[in-house]
Amino acid sequence: MTEIEEYLKSNTLGEWMNPTNLKLDKLQAMKSEFANSSPFSHLYIEELLLDEKLEQITVALSEQEFEYRQSDLFSLYQTEDFEHLESDVLVSFRSFLSSHEFVGYMRFLTGIDLTQKIDCLGNIYADTDYLLCHDDELLERQIAFIFYLTDMDASTGGAFHLYNTVNGEPDKVVKSLYPVQNRFFFFKVTRSSFHEVGEVIGEDDVRVSISGWFRND
């Protein structure tokens, strides 16, 4: 049995993940999709978690304190890294993401050497919040991820926009992806992984997600 086959049969992944995402042939197709994606390597996995886990995380996050943060680049609400929270559910979710098995799963999909060091925090984008164009490159970040807990669409804003580059600089948005609940989106962090989160429009909808980075330090 190969390493990835062992991971797919592990209790760690089985306890958290939807079985449809634990099939080797699907993983191989996703691996190819990641490698061939543009304008920079990215992929999303639909229905990542079992319904019960998704529900637990949604409730646990709704009970957390979010701090408003803004700068020239962004306006949004964030929690502390889940590492520092008292919520058993959120700490467990972080442990799942940084588990030997899930990191191995991500390593298989991306072909990138990753360690079990991750960053992981909750985000809320409310009306008029945004994150402007940047590349995420910092420290030992290898893969950036966003796990969506709410649905958004063109009427609510909050899309994830991917830029192409011309002479090393972001030029135009060439792909836009709206958040879908239980979707796990990730991309390879490079000097050209320019992206932004479009402004959330309207007081009735908020964009809730858990985001972070897989590292290699």
């Binding site: 020239d72 402007l132 429009i201």
Partner: peptide, 9 residues
């Protein structure tokens, strides 16, 4: 200097 993002309002 920076100029704050202009929102939809």
């Amino acid at each position: 200097r920076f100029v704050k993002y202009v929102n939809h309002y």
